[in-house]
Computed example of a mutant assay.
Amino acid sequence: MAVDPGIIGKEFPPMHLTVEAGRLRFFAQAIGETDPVYTDVEAAKAAGYADLPVPPTFLFAIELDSPDAFGFLAEAGVDLRFILHGEQSFAYHSIAYPGDVLTASPRITDVYSKKGGALEFIVKETAITRADGSAVADLKSVIVVRNLGAGQ
């Protein structure tokens, strides 16, 4: 079944996360980060940071904290058995630190297909801001959907 391009422009409820130092340390350890600026406050300050900086890919965790992180795919009629992570990119505007309250505001910005509709792509962009509205980052992810009903 083809992904309905009518979902382009769909905005989803914002998600909020208070950045916690312990979670940043855990995340750094989980991804194998060895730079002490992500786990040791003194090392971070010696490197010029105000506190532990949020590691680059951590911001995707905000959306994953949602009770239904992939609900947007279900709303689009996508069978999760046929998806792949296609791409992700980041544009950073400022560094986030423990204590920052961040808001993720996701929306679908594009739907397109390739290979005669056999592969469909859903592009989701998420603006990350602080409680005061200042920009932290813009995230982009592309989900690939295999459409078994389409020709190649």
Rank of each mutant, 00 (worst) to 15 (best):
residue 72 F to H: 00
residue 54 V to N: 05
residue 1 M to K: 10
residue 14 P to D: 08
residue 39 T to Y: 04
residue 45 K to S: 10
residue 110 D to Y: 05
residue 45 K to Q: 14
residue 74 A to N: 09
residue 95 I to R: 05
residue 64 L to V: 11
residue 87 E to C: 02
residue 56 P to R: 15
residue 148 L to T: 11
residue 37 V to C: 09
residue 20 E to F: 07
residue 57 T to Y: 09
residue 110 D to N: 08
residue 77 G to I: 03
residue 134 S to L: 07
residue 104 A to I: 00
residue 123 V to M: 07
residue 90 F to L: 15
residue 113 S to V: 12
residue 103 T to G: 13
residue 121 F to C: 01
residue 123 V to I: 11
residue 140 K to D: 04
residue 111 V to N: 02
residue 149 G to I: 01
residue 128 I to P: 01
residue 50 A to W: 07
residue 13 P to Y: 06
residue 32 G to C: 14
residue 80 L to A: 00
residue 6 G to H: 08
residue 13 P to S: 05
residue 96 A to C: 05
residue 71 G to S: 06
residue 152 Q to M: 08
residue 141 S to A: 12
residue 19 V to G: 03
residue 112 Y to N: 10
residue 151 G to N: 06
residue 92 Y to S: 12
residue 22 G to H: 10
residue 128 I to C: 03
residue 116 G to S: 06
residue 99 G to I: 14
residue 126 T to W: 00
residue 50 A to G: 08
residue 133 G to N: 08
residue 105 S to T: 06
residue 137 A to C: 03
residue 73 L to E: 02
residue 95 I to W: 01
residue 39 T to N: 10
residue 24 L to F: 05
residue 64 L to A: 14
residue 112 Y to T: 08
residue 135 A to Q: 12
residue 1 M to L: 12
residue 8 I to E: 08
residue 73 L to P: 01
residue 149 G to M: 09
residue 53 P to R: 03
residue 11 E to D: 03
residue 53 P to T: 11
residue 1 M to C: 13
residue 58 F to E: 02
residue 31 I to E: 13
residue 67 P to Y: 07
residue 149 G to V: 08
residue 136 V to L: 07
residue 73 L to G: 01
residue 40 D to S: 06
residue 85 H to Q: 05
residue 60 F to S: 01
residue 112 Y to S: 13
residue 118 A to N: 12
residue 15 M to F: 06
residue 3 V to H: 04
residue 58 F to W: 12
residue 14 P to S: 15
residue 78 V to L: 00
residue 82 F to I: 10
residue 131 A to D: 11
residue 46 A to E: 15
residue 137 A to N: 01
residue 12 F to Y: 12
residue 99 G to R: 05
residue 72 F to N: 01
residue 142 V to D: 04
residue 50 A to N: 11
residue 125 E to G: 08
residue 19 V to F: 07
residue 50 A to I: 05
residue 143 I to A: 05
residue 51 D to G: 12
residue 31 I to Q: 12
residue 121 F to G: 02
residue 85 H to Y: 03
residue 74 A to G: 10
residue 49 Y to S: 09
residue 63 E to G: 15
residue 126 T to N: 03
residue 103 T to H: 09
residue 20 E to P: 04
residue 53 P to F: 05
residue 150 A to C: 11
residue 79 D to E: 07
residue 92 Y to H: 13
